[in-house]
Simulated scan of single mutants.
Amino acid sequence: MRFTIKLGSGPLLLVAMLALPACTSSGSGGSDMGSTLGNMLRYGSTTEPPLARAVEVEATECPAVTVADGGAALRRGTSQISIANVARECIERAGGAISVKVGLEGRALLGAGGGGGRFDVPVTFQIKRGDRVIVSRLKRVAVTIPANDTQSSFMAIESDMIVPPGTGEYEIEVGLGGAAAAASPRRRRG
């Protein structure tokens, strides 16, 4: 069966769209919404999302991000680079693994007599359970302070850090610099 609907028909268009899935049939003889239009209404796409995506949900437990002792700031010449804000997101996947996404916002300030320039800032992201490191990633972020400015902001985001199922309680930690971020005492942030 084929329908022709003119756009701009107002309420008639809505009624026709809602009735259309009931008039179409899938190959199985049922009148489910497995059609292209049904998928558009349900998922905002012409196809169904993969099953693994459909079962991902926001994890009920997502620990606050801590900043490693000695990892909150570092110096480059007379300039200082520091962490200003942190955030995280934890998504539970099928099978119980948790995918963690961590981000930080930082600031670079020129010191006395400093000029604009580019700094290479190492940022460490870690997930730990007690003293055991589950995931550790080092990312280098370019921070640029334009000439005639005294400061600049930067962001670093690390995605898909996987916590295996059955790990239990874990900690999320960030720090500037490679060695400083490995220190054990931490300062809690947001």
Rank of each mutant, 00 (worst) to 15 (best):
Tyr43His: 06
Pro11Ser: 15
Gly77His: 09
Gly190Cys: 06
Ala52Lys: 02
Glu89His: 11
Ala183Phe: 12
Arg76Ile: 01
Leu109Lys: 13
Ile134Pro: 05
Gly168Cys: 04
Leu104Asp: 03
Phe119His: 11
Lys101Tyr: 03
Pro164Phe: 11
Leu138Tyr: 07
Gln151Asn: 12
Lys6Asp: 14
Gly10Tyr: 11
Ser82Tyr: 10
Pro122Asn: 10
Thr144Trp: 05
Met40Trp: 15
Ala16Asp: 03
Gly114Arg: 06
Gly111Thr: 07
Thr124Phe: 03
Ser136Arg: 14
Gly71Arg: 00
Val143Trp: 07
Pro185Tyr: 11
Gly103Trp: 00
Val102Asn: 00
Met17Thr: 03
Gly117Tyr: 02
Val143Tyr: 08
Gly111Lys: 05
Gly44Ile: 02
Ser79Asp: 10
Arg137Ile: 03
Asp160Gly: 05
Pro146Val: 12
Glu61Asn: 14
Gly71Glu: 03
Gly29Asn: 06
Gly178Ser: 13
Glu169Cys: 04
Ser79Trp: 01
Ala72His: 08
Ser26Tyr: 05
Gly70Trp: 03
Gly177Leu: 04
Val133Gln: 08
Phe154Thr: 02
Leu110Val: 10
Lys101Arg: 15
Gly95Glu: 07
Ser152Thr: 09
Thr46Arg: 12
Ala108Gly: 15
Phe154Gly: 05
Arg93Thr: 02
Val67Pro: 04
Ile91Ala: 03
Glu58Phe: 06
Ala19Thr: 09
Arg93Phe: 00
Val15Ala: 13
Gly27Cys: 08
Ser136Ile: 10
Met155Asn: 15
Arg189Thr: 10
Ala183Tyr: 11
Glu105Met: 11
Gly38Arg: 07
Glu173Ile: 11
Ala54Val: 08
Val100Ser: 04
Ile91Trp: 04
Gly10Lys: 13
Asn39Glu: 06
Ile81Trp: 06
Thr144Lys: 12
Tyr170Asp: 06
Ala52Glu: 07
Ile81Val: 15
Ser9Asn: 11
Lys139Arg: 15
Val174Gln: 04
Glu173Pro: 00
Arg42Val: 12
Gly103His: 01
Gly178Phe: 12
Ser28Gly: 14
Ile162Glu: 02
Asn85Tyr: 08
Arg76Pro: 00
Val57Arg: 14
Ile145Ser: 03
Arg186Asn: 11
Ala59Pro: 00
Val163Asp: 08
Ser136Gln: 15
Thr24Met: 14
Ala19Asn: 13
Glu158Asp: 12
Gly168Asn: 04
Val174Ala: 06
Arg53Trp: 07
Ser184Pro: 11
Ser152Glu: 04
Pro21Glu: 14
Pro63Gln: 02
Leu20Gln: 11
Asp69Gln: 14
Ser99Glu: 12
Asp32Cys: 10
Ala156Lys: 01
Ala68Pro: 03
Leu12Trp: 08
Leu20Met: 14
Arg42Glu: 07
Asp131Ser: 08
Pro146Lys: 15
Val65Ile: 13
Gly114Val: 03
Val102Tyr: 00
Pro165Met: 13
Gly10Met: 07
Val15Ser: 12
